[in-house]
Design a protein around this nucleic acid. Sequence first.
DNA 1: CGAATCCATTGACGTTCGTCAATGGGTCTG
DNA 2: CAGACCCATTGACGAACGTCAATGGATTCG
Lengths: 110, 110
Amino acid sequence: MVLPERERGVCCPPTIKARPEKVEQTSEILRALADPTRLQIAMALRDAQEPVCICDFTATFDISQPTVSHHMAKLREAGLVEVTKRGIWSFYRLAPDLPPATRRILQALG
Amino acid sequence: MVLPERERGVCCPPTIKARPEKVEQTSEILRALADPTRLQIAMALRDAQEPVCICDFTATFDISQPTVSHHMAKLREAGLVEVTKRGIWSFYRLAPDLPPATRRILQALG
DNA sequence: CGAATCCATTGACGTTCGTCAATGGGTCTG
DNA sequence: CAGACCCATTGACGAACGTCAATGGATTCG
């Protein structure tokens, strides 16, 4: 590996390509996905054929129902998921109009 | 959009494909990238041809030098970057042995 | 050697986060 | 209507986060 030659007192600030607004939005997406529970929820929704009921997630993870609800609210605020109510149940799915960049991140999660 | 038919008191826990250990590691990567400053640093390192000097980042962002150092430590702990010291300077680059999954996430960041 | 440069660490402070218990509103069934 | 079920919101609390000021070690230049 070759290291660049440098001169004392002279720095070479790298050019930042992304717009500040875009950076902020991307980091909000990442923050929403950065929790283990939310990551698994997001991946399950990504792979699901049908909208998933909240009660299913409550039955899956070892956390209380309010905590699941809290996590879904975070995913909602980040614009990652949408909710549809029907009778007793709330069904969640990935937002259908996700930007391609966001969709790429979700696909990269393995 | 069609919603699944449900029966009261019966839940259908979605199958979680990823191993718990893998989930934890992925969310650590995402946590490391979820800060706007670290996101821009990671993207700059991803696109750089040569290792980048810390002093360049200090000159770029509107935060103090210790804060830049703190962010680099986070990226180091997540295994995303490596440091090489030469004289006065510390040069950072993406870890050369990043798992393909991690590399895909970085590429998806736009 | 003395001064300057670069960088990591420590300590501190306010903010955000993850979680739970408690509460309340909606909806279905008997 | 009465009870059971599902879910969101609120309040609370400890943990983690992002930032800075201060400090100190390491290296280079004069």
